[in-house]
Design a protein around this nucleic acid. Sequence first.
DNA 1: ATCCTCCCCTAC
DNA 2: TAAGGTAGGGGAGGAT
Length: 980
Amino acid sequence: MSHSSGSSRKRGRPSSKSGSTKALKPPGFRSSPFTDFGSYMTEKNRKLNDQFETDASSSSYGANPEITDGGVGGGDGGIFKGVSIFVDGFTVPSSQELKNYMLKHGGRFINYFSRHTVSHIICSNLPDSKRKNLRAFSQGLPVVKPDWIVDSIAANTLLSWVPYQLIEHASTESSKQLKLFAFFSEKGVSRSNYQGTLIETEAFLPDECKGESTKPTFSVTDNSSQEKSQESKRTNTNNELKDVKSESEDDCSTSYVADQSSGRPDRPHSTLTDPDFVENYFKYSRLHFIGTWRNRYRKRFSNFISGTGSKNNNLNSNMESLKRIVIHVDMDCFFVSVVIRNSPELLDKPVAVCHSNNPKGTAEISSANYPARSYGIKAGMFVRDAKARCPHLTIFPYDFSAYEEVADQFYGILHKHCEKVKAVSCDEAFLEMFLSLNDYPESIAEMIRKEIYETTRCTASAGIGENMLLARLATKSAKPNGQCFIPPDKVDEYLDKLPVSALPGVGYNAAEKLRTREVETCAQLRTISKDILQKDLGSKMGEMLWNYCRGIDHSEVEAVQETKSIGAEVNWGVRFKDGRDSENFLMNLCKEVSLRLQGCGVQGRTITLKVKVRKKGAGEPVKYMGCGDCETISRSLTVPGAINDVASLHRIVKPTFASFHLDVKEVRGVGLKLSRLELANSSRKGVEESRLDFWLSSAMRKGKQPIEDSCLTKHSREDAPSGACPSSSSGVSQGSNISELPPLSHLDLDVIRNLPPEIFSEMNELYKGELRKILESRQQEKECTVESVERKDCEQQDQEFTTRMQCKFEQSKASCSNSNHFKSDLMPSSLSQVDSSILENLPDEVRADVLKSLPLHRVENQLPESSKSSILLGSYPKWFEILRVRNGLLSEYLLSSASFCSPNLVPGSEEWDAVVFCLSEFLKEYINQKIESDIEELYNCFCLLKRLSYDSSLLLELYDKTLPFVQASIGEHYGGKLHL
DNA sequence: ATCCTCCCCTAC
DNA sequence: TAAGGTAGGGGAGGAT
Ligand SMILES: Nc1ccn([C@H]2C[C@H](O)[C@@H](COP(=O)(O)OP(=O)(O)OP(=O)(O)O)O2)c(=O)n1
Ligand SMILES: [Mg+2]
Ligand SMILES: [Mg+2]
């Protein structure tokens, strides 16, 4: 190995004091999530206008608008207070003018599109493709013509944006969707709050500072003269806490501690206090930022990604004489470098990026620069530990939009120099090139690093090797601000003393396992046979280790592959006091995931819900608002038709959550993820066919429709007539034709009542008039839920079948009523539905009380039936009731009764058998009724029954007894089997 | 064998 | 106070 840059390491240290931010690059292309065209050349001189972190440092403390308004000196608040626009495409007036308008009148102009920071998208015209997919492309935000801004200024007041929407209300279906969507996601309502916090924080940026100063810092890092003199005078150890204190008394400073200690009441941010926690949380999460960066990159650089490397074809004339070279480039202490890039005086001082400067705090260090690392400070460490090691550590707040901007510049440079770029993260990528023998990879790396530094004023390091592994390892020894080439003949020497933990893929656990086998270095690792490694660490891991410790890595430098899953999770600040909290949170999580899916234009078939629950005995977490020591449980459900809309997601998520039988007070984290993704724009017909395909076993498919595959592809190319979200069916429990809409029971009636009449009418129509009925009956009877109201309306029909079933039920009841174990009082005395629906219709809190007797945590399969509550036995007759309701679907009930419990019966006892018999007779009747009309319903029922049977041996028995029947019946009618 | 579900692990 | 996300790889164990 050789450090090709012994000298270059020192080279290029910035020494200029010029803090001024003149554009080093010509103005480039704005970032847009909507176009393929990249935006990596964002203008530098915009950077202070869209600061994300200034939001963070003040908004979370809820600084009073009055206070901050006063502080600004700008005074007037401005007509666009609370408005944050993102300009898409060509506009009149130009985006530059719009930006000036916004800034002049108290609004915000956002370069980096994120629906968390943008309130309105400004756009002059939309191509048809976007118009059709409005929801996906706008991510639920209003898309408004620029006239709105101009007119508002002329009127000197903020006009309603509604008349300026790019797409008019009534004309198209997608506009209807937009409006409804806006309602369901509460954007229109809750947004004002959100904007409120944004505007408060904007005020922290005095106009004068824009060009010159760095961001406000927690400690003394500003360029302001006062701060600078302090900085230069003080000695290390003494001043830090003093600094913090004195700053906290200095009301002119924007110190973090000052904000926090300025006598405001505590406002702990958690799901308990913030109904929009999900949305707010992600705005400030660094891990969310780096976790979602990839998707933004994909969109912005898709023109570079999708094109297959053609330069290689150029060269493949004499491929043999070329050597493959991999270069790995990684920005040095990225988050820190970016925020101090205009403060060269800080380069040799310990600096870290963190939300908090509290020396007792548990906020995490995101990145620490190299001076700070010499104190042992590392990413992920609590700020209090960092401060303990280095009291004079300077803490900077995050600046996410600056990271985004620098990352764009970084990738712009990489793509310019190389066709094959594999993005690892926002600050890190692999380049592959095939060089002739007289080319020096070192000079290429040098050139790239130089350009990165000159463009971003941040340093990058590079590693060069013959494969990705070696390049990556080389980067580690090159850092900071250096580069390193590991030539093939130095590989073993380099690896010998390398700790195994330095190998990519070897984390804490693998390193520990190896350590207990007294393997710490790659040299030691090489002495172990592949067989042993595979036996001890798994087949893949063993193989990988065996290769890596010899410097072997066959993996290819490929562009990003297709996304396999999309999800969102929150494991911080999650605290529920009751079912309403958790319900609200789940709904917001569904919204979030739905938007992300739509943003990517995909739908998913497998829905996975993950929950973290406080481990028994675990106290309050060390980390403030953290999740602490938890048990993680997850459950997934696969539906035949892919979904990505909130309503369908929620319809599945809610009962799945309930099926965990958790005490919500113990929940510390929730995640929702969709996999088995499909493109969202396949036609309805294609979806229908693929679902039919899904229900039936392969045997039948082959026999019946050999041509189907080709048909399917053909159909799916055709455009869906209605644009976005063609399927929209959950595939489970689709009761009627209101498939796009959330079930009535999920609507907040208070909100509905207060809707503008015209929107109410529109919704009422969509719900076929049910909405009005509900409001009316709700007027009289408060306890009554939507569901039961629906039921009342349909009560008189379809008595015949039910009557027959009643007889059977009464029969079986009678036949075992003499058993002394039989709790006959738990059985319904008649099928008077009142009893049976009570539980379901209880308000969540009450039901939670009723269900107190259930175990707090997940009901394990092994749990004896007797320990479960028997109250739900009374809900079996509900099965019958289903048939009385028009279009009543058993699957719907099964899905919603995930809290289904078995009766307090002894397996194998007479009464047990009676119940099983009764239910199986019912099921058979139901099958007969549905076999010709609704095979999907039967499929759904048995999927759910199967799932429920994991928790209930009674239902297992029922499932086993009825499965043959349904399969036989399917075979008879369709010549196949349900594919379960 | 091959799939699926429910985990755990890793990296940024 | 503080913002512990995201996505892929892979293994164990059960169902088919
Ligand atoms: N636990 C972590 C790891 C990383 N990051 C963020 C901050 C980092 O700046 C950025 C890039 O991660 P790197 O691993 O590349 O770390 P740095 O760039 O900070 O340092 P290095 O010089 O080692 O690359 O990701 C984070 O917030 N938390
Ligand atoms: Mg880095
Ligand atoms: Mg990195």
